[in-house]
Amino acid sequence: TTTLTYTDEEEARKAAEELKRRGITFTYTKRGGTWEIRIK
């Protein structure tokens, strides 16, 4: 499992869109002031 952490929502959203485009499965979690993208 790879976890990407972002403090900028815009960056996190761009990363999530890129992963979706590649067909990669991930979970997206907001934790306080950070956003976590966990790639399975």
Rank of each mutant, 00 (worst) to 15 (best):
1 T>Y: 15
1 T>I: 14
1 T>N: 11
1 T>V: 14
1 T>P: 11
2 T>Q: 11
2 T>P: 06
2 T>H: 11
2 T>W: 14
2 T>Y: 12
2 T>C: 05
2 T>E: 09
2 T>L: 15
2 T>F: 13
3 T>F: 10
3 T>M: 10
3 T>Q: 04
3 T>I: 15
3 T>P: 04
3 T>G: 03
3 T>E: 03
3 T>S: 05
4 L>R: 05
4 L>A: 03
4 L>C: 05
4 L>F: 14
4 L>V: 06
4 L>N: 03
5 T>G: 02
5 T>K: 09
5 T>W: 12
5 T>I: 15
5 T>V: 15
6 Y>R: 00
6 Y>H: 01
6 Y>Q: 00
6 Y>S: 01
7 T>D: 10
7 T>E: 09
7 T>M: 09
7 T>L: 10
7 T>N: 09
8 D>N: 14
8 D>Y: 05
8 D>I: 10
8 D>V: 11
8 D>H: 08
8 D>L: 08
9 E>R: 07
9 E>A: 07
9 E>F: 07
9 E>L: 05
9 E>G: 06
9 E>Q: 07
9 E>H: 06
9 E>P: 07
9 E>D: 03
10 E>A: 14
10 E>P: 04
10 E>K: 13
10 E>V: 12
10 E>T: 13
10 E>Y: 12
10 E>F: 11
11 E>R: 06
11 E>N: 06
11 E>I: 06
11 E>W: 04
11 E>L: 08
11 E>S: 13
12 A>E: 00
12 A>L: 04
12 A>S: 06
12 A>H: 01
12 A>G: 04
12 A>Y: 11
12 A>F: 15
13 R>W: 09
13 R>A: 07
13 R>Q: 12
14 K>M: 10
14 K>V: 08
14 K>I: 08
14 K>G: 06
15 A>R: 04
15 A>W: 05
15 A>I: 10
15 A>F: 11
15 A>K: 13
15 A>L: 06
16 A>G: 05
16 A>E: 02
16 A>N: 02
16 A>Y: 06
16 A>Q: 04
16 A>K: 04
17 E>K: 10
17 E>Q: 11
17 E>S: 09
17 E>G: 07
17 E>I: 10
18 E>L: 07
18 E>T: 07
18 E>S: 08
18 E>I: 09
18 E>H: 07
19 L>V: 01
19 L>P: 00
19 L>E: 00
19 L>Y: 04
19 L>F: 09
19 L>T: 01
19 L>D: 00
19 L>M: 04
19 L>S: 00
19 L>W: 02
20 K>A: 13
20 K>R: 14
20 K>H: 11
20 K>S: 13
20 K>I: 13
21 R>C: 02
21 R>I: 09
21 R>L: 11
21 R>N: 10
21 R>Y: 06
21 R>E: 09
21 R>H: 08
21 R>V: 07
21 R>D: 08
21 R>P: 01
22 R>G: 05
22 R>P: 01
22 R>K: 12
23 G>N: 06
23 G>P: 01
23 G>W: 02
23 G>M: 03
23 G>A: 03
24 I>Y: 10
24 I>K: 03
24 I>P: 00
24 I>F: 10
25 T>L: 13
25 T>E: 15
25 T>F: 12
25 T>S: 14
26 F>A: 02
26 F>T: 01
26 F>D: 00
26 F>G: 01
26 F>I: 03
26 F>L: 02
26 F>R: 00
27 T>F: 06
27 T>L: 06
27 T>S: 09
27 T>V: 09
27 T>D: 09
27 T>K: 04
27 T>G: 03
28 Y>S: 04
28 Y>F: 15
28 Y>M: 15
28 Y>E: 04
28 Y>I: 15
28 Y>W: 12
28 Y>G: 02
29 T>Y: 10
29 T>M: 10
29 T>C: 05
29 T>L: 11
29 T>W: 07
29 T>D: 06
29 T>V: 12
30 K>D: 12
30 K>N: 12
30 K>R: 09
30 K>H: 13
30 K>C: 04
30 K>T: 07
31 R>E: 10
31 R>S: 11
31 R>V: 15
31 R>N: 14
31 R>P: 02
31 R>A: 10
31 R>L: 13
32 G>T: 04
32 G>A: 09
32 G>L: 07
32 G>W: 04
32 G>P: 05
32 G>K: 06
32 G>V: 05
32 G>Q: 09
33 G>Q: 13
33 G>W: 06
33 G>F: 10
33 G>T: 12
33 G>C: 03
33 G>N: 15
33 G>I: 08
33 G>P: 11
34 T>E: 09
34 T>N: 10
34 T>D: 04
34 T>R: 11
34 T>Y: 15
34 T>S: 10
34 T>K: 13
34 T>W: 12
34 T>I: 15
34 T>A: 10
35 W>T: 03
35 W>C: 02
35 W>P: 01
35 W>Q: 01
35 W>S: 01
35 W>D: 00
36 E>C: 03
36 E>L: 10
36 E>S: 04
36 E>D: 02
37 I>E: 00
37 I>F: 03
37 I>L: 05
37 I>Y: 01
37 I>H: 00
37 I>V: 03
37 I>G: 00
38 R>C: 04
38 R>V: 15
38 R>M: 14
38 R>W: 09
38 R>L: 13
38 R>Q: 15
39 I>W: 04
39 I>C: 02
39 I>F: 12
39 I>Q: 02
39 I>R: 02
39 I>M: 05
39 I>D: 00
40 K>V: 15
40 K>M: 15
40 K>C: 08
40 K>P: 14
40 K>Q: 15
